[in-house]
Design a protein around this nucleic acid. Structure first.
Lengths: 220, 220
DNA sequence: ACTATTTTTTAGACTAACTTAAAAATATAT
DNA sequence: ATATATTTTTAAGTTAGTCTAAAAAATAGT
């Protein structure tokens, strides 16, 4: 049974929404994620349901079947592996790779994914710190906390971002807050909820609330 | 102006036919190359013509405009660069890469192509010996002749194939007639138009007419 | 030059994916 | 509990790309 490019994107959207919200994806949530009308979503839901890729009860939201979830995680796997390729091998920066990987994730070839994975030395995380699922769809879990939730004195290293926007990634580049950078929380300012941190054991920097809410740190 | 995946494939087909036949591509030739009906081709011709990607006069055949040709050669460039990547970096064999490259050639990103080209050290030929056009669409020309047209005593090295079928490529692998292999024509048999050749200065082998017609050799 | 064959185009219809507008079902609020 | 608001679905229509069957144009044979 053939699955189209478009159907793949819907499955990915449904996976993302379910993961975020922890409940079935609503028609509106999907239409917003896909930038299409709610009517188009209802239409597509029928097709995906006919192909037993989703569970669907009208007015009740959508969840993925085993097969639908397998397709979605495989897309995520390919997307993130290609991102690693683009950054590690072709020297793109982490804020440039999403759109290209969005296309590359649809390339169909089991062997290609396996070889690429091997070529990249079986990476477990992509350039933004997001886990790369294995061929069975299992994600590595990393203990990580938002910088926001740290207490003064606690240390850790930058392992990921919550916000994947280009502007945020470029901001982090300027601040030299790339993945793997050691940080220590020095001081919390109640006034504007900003934080003063020590970057790389040498530079001090004050970060806004918004930044602290979007930066994942692994405690050590 | 957006050009679809399908439109790109039509442009590539038209380029290929014009190149082979040296004259405008007929509706039937295109429908045969694309595995679609002649009616579908007529339809698509109108669309491509509206987008000024082809010159079209009804019942007269189709030629590419400058812009159409530029798109076609750029697709070929991407296709062949990806083939080099798959063979050189991911260790695919030359008979496995066509289908995957057929998908990869549609990935849209100027920067990606440039970086890939650089990463592969600016190759001028793909794994089948076909020339890779540069960013302006210029193909390197290599003096090559079919083994068929050699005289006994003449020597050269294998530089390409006319027939790109999996079976032929696998046959060549078995015979150790890969790109770069030195060969010498020892004897021509008029009876069945077969040829006895010396491979790699050590092994003798008789090749059928069909093989000799499909193997490009650079004389030396 | 006229008939026969081949090639190309037109006509009409299908599917996937999309839209807007209206109707129906569900959820919320007083 | 009923009115209001929100969400979802249905209805009807569009576009790209495809098809088959029939018509029209071009080519070829005697």
């Amino acid at each position: 049974m053939e699955i189209s490019y478009t159907e793949e994107n819907y499955l990915k959207a449904i996976f993302k929404i379910s993961e975020q919200d922890g409940k079935p994806a609503s028609t509106n949530a999907i239409s917003s994620e896909m930038n299409t009308s709610a009517a188009s979503v209802t239409d597509m839901i029928k097709r995906l349901s006919d192909k037993t890729l989703i569970h669907y009860e009208r007015y009740r939201g959508v969840t993925l079947t085993k097969r639908g979830e397998q397709i979605a995680t495989h897309l995520i796997r390919k997307h993130r592996l290609w991102e690693v390729f683009l950054v590690d091998k072709l020297h793109f920066s982490w804020d440039e790779v999403h759109e290209i990987a969005e296309q590359l994730e649809h390339i169909k070839s089991q062997r290609l994914v396996e070889r690429l994975d091997e070529y990249l030395a079986f990476p477990k995380f992509d350039p933004h710190g997001d886990p790369i699922p294995d061929a069975d769809g299992n994600f590595a879990i990393r203990k990580q906390a938002l910088l926001m939730d740290f207490q003064p004195g606690e240390q850790g290293i930058v392992v990921g971002v919550q916000d994947h926007s280009t502007t945020f990634l470029q901001y982090l580049d300027r601040m030299e807050l790339v993945l793997g950078t050691p940080v220590e929380l020095l001081e919390y300012f109640e006034y504007d909820e900003s934080m003063r941190i020590l970057i790389n054991q040498k530079r001090e920097q004050v970060l806004s609330k918004k930044v602290c809410q979007n930066l994942f740190i692994q405690k050590r």
